[in-house]
Amino acid sequence: MGTKRNFRVWRGDAGGGELQDFQVEVNEGEVVLDIIHRLQATQTPDLACRWNCKAGKCGSCSMEINGMPRLGCMTRMSTFTADETVTITPLRTFPVIRDLVTDVSFNYRKARETPAFTPPADLAPGEYRMQQVDVERSQEFRKCIECYLCQNTCHVIRDHEENKPPFSGPRFFIRAAELDMHPLDTLEDRKEYAQASMGLGMCNITKCCTEVCPEHIKITDNAIIPMKERVVDRRYDPLVWLGRKIFRRDQLPSPGPDPLLGVLPPREPAEGEPDWQRRHHGAQGPAVGDDGHLPITELTFENQGAGSPFGDDVTLPLPAEDLNYHHPRDDPRR
């Protein structure tokens, strides 16, 4: 009952690749992901493609179909005409690994940089009380399945690679909005953080993130614009600004906007007190390479299984200035 249809699938890796033509059988009621599975089973067993639930709930099978960022499992073949060639490519904003699989670690890095939920300290589990109307706004954003189609389509990073470090992307703007609107979140400077460290100001609200969102989250109207307005409350209110100019408040050292390190604003240590804020080399774990992986060793490495618990590349004793340790014996306040 199936008919043969034409497909063009991008195949290759970071070293290069090309669009290849295939003829695949298509049956009634199928989606693009079904076609990819049929390709794997019949013509190209090593065609790489991510997928999981095949029901639009996990957000794994993000790809670009006829140039539009979409989920493979949510794109029905019936939306194309029978003689149309369907072009399938990997996401174009992220580095490609192979075929349709891209390296989306950018998003996980940004997720780590977004300050986490901070509950009130005095509330025990089970004592949380929240009204439905208060949680509904945040609930909309928690529908996010992290398919990263919004991140992929956002021209701020899609067309401008150099913006990746300062820009977190729509996915994390809705995360920031979700927490800022969370009735029990206590962190106050999320707006400031969004503007200063997540690149909220780079968004020019052209709404492509909303257009491609498979969960139909109103990313722009319900998260980004309200966050921009909240930033305006604090930053661009001319009265506040004028006040700052007149009283020269902006000459004062402003507390760092990074809430991860900046919850305590950096300050000069008192006499004799250790400087806990100073930069040190951090954990003494084994050094990882640029790809985040450990340096690779041969199977027959001479001292396998008996490596130093501090990492084989560490020479003891460590330089004292690298230790974030202060012996109480030296404390003048004792």
Binding site: F117, P125, Y128, R129, M130, Q132, H182, D185
Partner: peptide, 22 residues
């Protein structure tokens, strides 16, 4: 099970609420 669910709330989960906010 109840303690485990309540714990999730302290991690930031937002379950649907009853009228009295539970």
């Amino acid at each position: 099970a109840p303690s485990r669910i309540w714990e999730l709330e302290t991690y930031g989960a937002l379950f649907d609420r009853t009228k009295d906010g539970r």
